[in-house]
Design a binder for these strands. Structure first.
Lengths: 159, 159
DNA sequence: CAAATATATGTAGTAGACTACATATATTGA
DNA sequence: TCAATATATGTAGTCTACTACATATATTTG
């Protein structure tokens, strides 16, 4: 075991990111193995527009939990791939409304069996004594109650 | 609840990254609140060199689980901050040996109480029904046995 | 109803990791 | 022993998110 793994929770941010990268990389390869040209980072937008067909930029950003600039750059890529298209909102001229194209719809159809496979494979992978997905949700809940910073500050006073 | 959180494990990579960023950001603020000018990304290198005083570039990379180019750029920053220094290995001329400077040693000393606070705050935060740190370790173990890609491939054949 | 404020979108540059490639030195094996 | 291979380090450019700032339209309020 290396020093970092021993340091345990001090390097937890690093560990989370490493795991995320690993999963994403394999995710890309799994799509590829199914003959689908799809980048995992596109999933949140495509999945969201599949379930809520017409949304503005900020609405999508909120749904996927990204900032709007990050969202805009994803949208640009997806428009370039002709998987989504946009039109001005006639009521509110500030808004740009996004939706899947026919090509986008078709791709989602093709991806759905892959998503089923991914779901099962992931479930199997994280089904251990401490379930990773539930752990994430629980920690997110904890952070909502009291931020990490506040927890450290409270601890500081005690020491 | 938004669509992505509902999509559950399909967006697990995104969720992991989001959580990592959040923790890292607060981590930086916590050092700052202690009057310490230290970036969380430097932790793995500093912690490693504190426990193993003289290491080469690749040895550090292996300890912290990063690639060597990533490690090199961290080392550059730390040398610029004069927290570490390097010298040629006299036996193996290819190697560059790194170690903490006096300033680096002193900083680690100052950080140790902060690390204690961070440890306790983190432990408190992740001490839920499903412990996040243990979940990470368990999933890393699962991936060592069989990659995510191989799991999906096996699942594919079954469907 | 016009000024102030809020919201929606967009651009530019940054951060922290990566891969791919290049070079220098060390080791190995025919 | 020297050619082939392996290892150590370094550079350049990429990727996927971010923050900070800018602009355009809508809404609110004095």
């Amino acid at each position: 075991m290396n020093v970092i793994d021993e340091s345990g929770i001090l390097a937890i941010a690093t560990r989370l990111q490493r795991l995320s990268d690993q999963i994403r990389k394999d995710g890309f390869q799994i799509y590829k193995a199914h003959g689908i040209d799809f980048e995992p980072k596109w999933f949140p937008v495509m999945y969201t527009l599949f379930h809520k067909p017409v949304l503005s930029v900020v609405e999508i950003a909120n749904e996927i939990g990204y900032t709007h600039p990050s969202t805009i750059s994803l949208l640009k890529e997806l428009e370039k791939e002709k998987l989504i298209r946009s039109k001005k909102d006639k009521i509110d001229e500030r808004k740009r409304l996004l939706q899947l194209t026919d090509k986008g719809q078709t791709l989602v159809g093709k991806m759905q069996p892959v998503w089923d496979v991914l779901k099962i494979a992931t479930a199997e992978m994280i089904d251990t004594e401490n379930n990773l997905m539930r752990a994430i949700e629980e920690v997110e809940g904890q952070l909502k109650e009291k931020s990490f910073f506040d927890r450290a500050a409270a601890q500081m006073k005690r020491v």
